[in-house]
């Protein structure tokens, strides 16, 4: 299929990674070869290598594509026949009422659902053309390339430094750890606040700082995609704004998928929006996928308009 051929070129390790170029001291080998993605701007990708018959609504250069995904917990179907694609180097927001399967779908993208006994997925989640649920795919490798930030900040009960160094140490990274920690904390906009207390416990930070520490920890493994499950819902408005600004900076180098209950946040912070709803069978399904501007100004579906204007959910 065309998706496969396109992504085959995308994963070629000969492609240069501007993130690596920008920071020449960074040893490129810590990023697994599969994660070496040319962060081509979406616009350029559209001119140069846009697939011939891509439907208008689907972005070119997707980082992840879900097709006909259904997710089950035991006999219960939580999500039904979901298809959408996640454009690279953009922020995709999953919105919808409680029970519409947003978080379940998010966890399907890095196979975190595997940790829930009895969960099962039908359909395909393709990452550069590879179905992440193929039998020979190692979920641990998936999670190293597709990181996750949780709803409640969950720093380890270790020092700030050790929190950030945790992931790289798992991968046996032994080079300049100090530099990697500093760079990750800078990218997470936390460095200035913690540079003098790296040995202190991560639990001593405020909620907003803890969440940025968790983002730094995720960045330190140099994933390609960062999944965020309502990352600001436990934070005060000022910390929320910081996280949103941070996301806008991070999309230069990362692809971000965020689940949010906050309409304004989705409207402010995201480029694409996937609106999900819970069907009569209590399974979540996709109502509408489009550019965020379109969803919030001129949605195709009445249901979408009702939801974003607060008439239900």
């Amino acid at each position: 299929m065309r998706v496969t051929t396109e992504s085959a070129t995308m994963t070629t390790p000969t492609m240069t990674d501007p993130a690596v170029e920008a920071t020449p001291s960074q040893p490129p080998e810590i990023r697994p070869p599969g994660a070496m993605v040319p962060p081509r701007p979406i616009a350029r990708a559209r001119d140069a290598s846009a697939p011939r018959n891509e439907p208008e609504a689907r972005p070119a250069n997707p980082a992840v594509e879900l097709s006909d995904v259904s997710i089950f917990y035991g006999a219960f179907r939580a999500v039904r026949d979901v298809s959408f694609s996640v454009p690279a180097h953009a922020i995709t927001a999953l919105i919808g009422p409680s029970g519409s399967g947003k978080s379940t779908l998010l966890r399907a993208i890095n196979r975190m659902n595997d940790l829930t006994p009895g969960s099962r997925l039908d359909g395909e989640v393709r990452y550069h053309g590879t179905n992440l649920y193929r039998a020979d795919v190692d979920p641990v490798e998936v999670r190293r390339r597709i990181g996750m930030v949780f709803q409640k900040p969950n720093p380890f009960p270790k020092s700030i430094y050790d929190n950030v160094a945790f992931g790289p140490r798992l991968n046996g990274y032994r080079d300049n750890m100090d530099e990697l920690v500093e760079r990750s904390l800078r990218q997470a906009a936390l460095w200035d606040e913690v540079k003098d207390k790296l040995k202190q416990s991560g639990l001593a930070l405020s909620g907003g700082q803890q969440q940025r520490l968790c983002i730094a920890r995720t960045i330190a493994v140099e994933p390609e995609i960062i999944l965020m499950d309502e990352p600001a819902s436990a934070l005060d408005p000022r910390s929320t704004l910081q996280i949103e600004e941070l996301m806008a900076e991070l999309k230069e180098n990362y692809t971000i998928v965020i689940v949010t209950h906050n309409m304004q946040q989705a409207a402010r912070a995201s480029d694409r929006t996937v609106f999900l709803n819970m069907g009569d069978d209590r399974a979540g399904y996709v109502v509408e996928v489009d550019d965020t501007v379109k969803i919030f100004t001129n949605p195709r579906e009445q249901l979408t308009e009702d939801y974003i204007s607060g008439r239900f959910g």
Binding site: R144, P155, R217
Partner: peptide
């Protein structure tokens, strides 16, 4: 939450046990 944080960083089960669960 702690264990999930570890798994989300690509830790294997034994790594999570030795680096997160037992120290905690």
């Amino acid at each position: 939450d702690l264990k999930r944080g570890s798994y989300a960083l690509g830790a294997r089960q034994w790594q999570t046990v030795f680096r997160v669960t037992l120290p905690a």
